[in-house]
Write a protein that binds this DNA or RNA. Sequence first.
DNA 1: TATGAATGAGTATTCATTCAT
DNA 2: GATGAATGAATACTCATTCAT
Lengths: 192, 192, 192, 192
Amino acid sequence: MDGEAKPLRADAQRNRERVLAAAEMVLARDGTAASMRTIAAEAGVGLGTIYRQFATKEALVEAIVFERARQLIELAEELANAPDPGVTFFEFFSQIVEFSTRKRSLTDALPDPDLAIDKDRSGIEQEMRRVLSALLERAQAAHAVRGDFGIDELLALLLATSLAAEKATWSDEFRERTLGFVFDGIRYRTGD
Amino acid sequence: MDGEAKPLRADAQRNRERVLAAAEMVLARDGTAASMRTIAAEAGVGLGTIYRQFATKEALVEAIVFERARQLIELAEELANAPDPGVTFFEFFSQIVEFSTRKRSLTDALPDPDLAIDKDRSGIEQEMRRVLSALLERAQAAHAVRGDFGIDELLALLLATSLAAEKATWSDEFRERTLGFVFDGIRYRTGD
Amino acid sequence: MDGEAKPLRADAQRNRERVLAAAEMVLARDGTAASMRTIAAEAGVGLGTIYRQFATKEALVEAIVFERARQLIELAEELANAPDPGVTFFEFFSQIVEFSTRKRSLTDALPDPDLAIDKDRSGIEQEMRRVLSALLERAQAAHAVRGDFGIDELLALLLATSLAAEKATWSDEFRERTLGFVFDGIRYRTGD
Amino acid sequence: MDGEAKPLRADAQRNRERVLAAAEMVLARDGTAASMRTIAAEAGVGLGTIYRQFATKEALVEAIVFERARQLIELAEELANAPDPGVTFFEFFSQIVEFSTRKRSLTDALPDPDLAIDKDRSGIEQEMRRVLSALLERAQAAHAVRGDFGIDELLALLLATSLAAEKATWSDEFRERTLGFVFDGIRYRTGD
DNA sequence: TATGAATGAGTATTCATTCAT
DNA sequence: GATGAATGAATACTCATTCAT
């Protein structure tokens, strides 16, 4: 839909990936305050090499967020036709939160209704809304999730629990227990 | 060993408050990356004036967090004997989240199990746990909240929803709707 | 010859002395990098009180140097008619150096031929030259010090050994031993 | 574990030298209170350029001191086998003092028994003691210097006269005359 | 008159970004 | 293309000095 115009030379592509991997690791460890120099060192490339691929630090961070969003979308798409829509929905929710525990700043990948929405960002966010809506609707059709629970509320609660998990590093056990209460509030019940 | 020793000269007190107010505003807007100079300018005082009251930037931020935590605790204490424990509990939860919508970084006031806990911080966090536990237990005794919902889960969900509300600036209407689902998962139901 | 015009109120005089004493102590300990606030705290007075007596930090430092110079001069004058001019001369030399070991920056009290010489400074320096010359000449007249050793060389060697003693904090024993060599070079010898 | 690892790019090397030269000059003029900005301006480079070569101001100052110490050592080593040990010894002493007249703060290169001694510093100071001891012992063996004059006293008097020469900027003529008296005190005499 | 609160220029240092090698 | 040296704006913090209380 944009960008990736020329298919990058092989070595350039390899460098791009090394930088992304290093940046992901360093940012996860040090937060966005991490310096470009640190990232370059971790990637084993020169500073200039990063700037060849990413115009600014902001662009690099965005690329990572973008990448993560793509992974989420991919995962959601794989699950689009999974056998049990209800179980699938809740497991997917849980998985996203677990992801956040491990990778700091993943939450930036979730649509932020506030931020100035540039083209690229908007595109992927739309896509995320789309795939999440699909999972949600299937779960509702299967009478596993309440019908009055909308996509905006889903995004809000995903963001909420992911942020908290990220900030406080929830244990697996604690995550499941806490999410359990949220899920109980969302779950379809006879009489709704 | 605490502080509040001498009762500050009138002008010093006024400046202290101006600095705190300005810092709260600027930090809410720009995050903790905001510069001391910006805060001083916003407060209409010289840089040195800030440093007279707060030894470091960190101390200033902590003072704000501390102040907010104290407000929360005060509110919770006022509600400790309110007539309807169930309604009180859920309204309190909602109010905290609403607070976050207006004042960014309030969430720092909620206990963060992770961070190195210095004495002062630890004190206020213990207090917050205590008052929140009291509200929770009263609501549980009144069969308004599930008995298996603990203080840690409460803190986690408060943090979660506050962070999200803060990040995305939820409207009143959206907040009530979204929290409604969470509350439904927490609420006591016959058969538990 | 100047300054001390009005004879200062009793309390003002007391404050002046407290400040001087504190400043001497603090400057000796921390060097001239010591802050005015530290000095005020040590003296147990407010910052303003220091500035009432000394227009600038520089003026305060100068006052101390001045004070020390006056002490040296006084000592030299007391010795002007001491019984053994030779012993007196060398003991005086040694005492000045010992002084430097204890009080940092005393060396500033010794005439510095370089510096822009303001009126006050010049006055006391002239005086110091005068009293030192007197001691020296008496020692030479008594055939205790070589006749070709002049006042400029005396000042230079006093400054030299004082600076070194100050910088390296010589022990009593080391000072006497080291000065011994210098004295041997100055001492009158048959055949001169 | 030492340093001189990679042989610096040509431009980096040139800048390093420009910085060192500028720092030497500025520090000589303004003392160690001189600001990094002033040094950068004098060197005609950006502030960051200094910090690329020297991690802190302290490191820069140390580098200069180190450099000077190395020059002294080199000079001393060249003289280690000079024909007349006595003349050599006194000329070397005089040369060091003359050096100080031109380059302020050289005296920092002389071992300071006081200061916290870090590894590098300690290394070079040991070396300086060693080469000076060698010169001294040769002069003593040649009956040019008194046998009871030790390396510590030598270092003390070198420091003393260098500091004074630095502070007061002695003329060539005055230096020779004044040092003459010191030398006379050190010199070997029949009857010792 | 004494106090210490307020001021803001000045300091060392960091870091995103540019550009010569 | 890749490297990393150079740049300088920006940051937290200090301190001599002034001035309201």
